[in-house]
Simulated assay, not measured.
Amino acid sequence: MIAKIQWTVSVPILAIAALILTWGRDLPPPIVIIVGLFLAGSVLAAVHHAEVVAHKVGEPYGSLVLAVAVTIIEVALIVTLMISGGEKTQSLARDTVFAAVMITCNGILGLSLLVGAIRRRIAVFNPEGTGGALAAVATIATLSLVLPSFTTSRNGPEFSPAQLAFAAVASLGLYLLFVLVQTRRHRDYFLPITTAGQVINEEEHLEPPSARSAGISLGVLLLALIAVVGLAKGVSPSIEAGVADAGLPQSVVGVVIALLVLLPETIAAVRAAARDRMQTSLNLALGSAMASIGLTIPAIAIAMIWLSGPLLLGLGGTQIVLLALTMVVGTLTVVPGRANVLQGGIHLGLLAVFLFLAASP
């Protein structure tokens, strides 16, 4: 345990050092590989420290810690790439946010259901809390990513400044309302329950960390997030060049960013599902989807005050169909409060369709 803690502390520190040494420089392939290793190590360290903080504050607050942390990474990456990327990044926010929704609502959710169902035949969760979360995701996603394709104030899939401001305020307001319901008014809807239906108010086998340990983990978590953002910015030219050399659409860059920043959520959600904490897994998946839209869109709207060029938010026809299908299937999955390997496999199948169409539209 000591070695693990030392490793999760030392890697972010080394990653920050690597960030300082490589910032603003063109990196040759061997250095890109080294930076990528530090990036992956920082992501894993962030998962560990986020789980320590989450265990200290308890559910459902713990799920919010990692969801908000991941969204901070996403927003920082999008803004920094849009500042330096020019016209080719006008749709980066849309591509990344849509990819995050598809990965969380199909990938993380499906993988969690599959792991939970394989281990215990039936994955059990609270339909009231999960259904409310899915409804919020569907509403915010439609408002921010679908409506711009149908509004007429601007040519193309973009909002006018007034529409963008309204969408940003509405998305943030719905997200904050959900957080209030999740943490205060109906907190019991989001507490994990076992397969036998027993509500788990606290971890049964592990003592909560001390305030000092949780404080240290919070500090190292922030350090790891800074390292992830900075190093990802450093390797992003290599990612974009690789996508271009492979003849793939520019939207694949957004998919890669989403896959990268959601890796901590994926690991944490699968671990929770393996421990029969399915509700925690779904809190992480849907909470990340909601935070990705509800916090990213307002941040991008503010950044557009300084950024030049249009902000393309509206999805195309293919993406709208995938989003609608995801929400319909998700509704059928969460309403019963019980799922088996079939539901998990269906969601993972939808993720595979999304990834294939992203590479071959």
Rank of each mutant, 00 (worst) to 15 (best):
L66V: 09
I72H: 04
I73W: 03
E74D: 11
V75A: 01
V75D: 01
A76D: 07
A76R: 00
I78L: 05
T80H: 03
S84A: 13
S84Q: 10
S84K: 07
G85P: 00
G86R: 05
G86H: 01
E87Y: 02
K88E: 13
A93M: 09
A93I: 11
D95H: 06
T96H: 02
V97F: 00
V97K: 03
F98M: 05
A100T: 08
I103K: 03
I103P: 00
T104N: 09
T104C: 08
T104M: 05
C105G: 02
C105A: 12
C105W: 04
N106M: 01
N106T: 04
L109G: 04
L113P: 01
L114S: 01
L114F: 04
V115F: 00
G116I: 03
A117W: 00
I118A: 12
R119H: 04
R119S: 10
R120T: 10
R120H: 12
I122S: 05
I122W: 13
A123P: 01
A123L: 08
A123Y: 02
N126I: 05
E128G: 08
E128K: 15
G131Y: 00
G132K: 14
G132H: 14
A133H: 03
L134T: 06
L134S: 05
A135L: 13
A136N: 04
A136D: 06
V137N: 11
A138H: 09
A138Y: 04
I140D: 04
L143A: 06
S144Q: 09
V146W: 02
L147F: 07
P148N: 06
F150S: 14
T151M: 13
T151Y: 11
S153L: 14
R154A: 14
N155Y: 14
N155I: 14
N155C: 13
P157A: 15
P157N: 15
F159R: 08
P161W: 11
P161H: 07
A162C: 10
L164G: 08
A165E: 15
F166S: 13
A167F: 12
A168E: 10
A170P: 14
A170L: 15
A170F: 14
S171V: 09
L172N: 09
L172S: 09
G173F: 09
L174R: 08
L174G: 05
L174K: 05
Y175C: 03
Y175R: 10
L176R: 07
L176N: 05
Q182D: 07
T183Q: 06
T183D: 08
R184Y: 11
R185D: 02
R185Q: 09
H186C: 10
D188T: 11
D188V: 09
Y189Q: 12
F190Y: 15
F190D: 06
F190T: 09
P192V: 10
P192M: 08
I193P: 00
T195K: 10
T195L: 05
V199E: 12
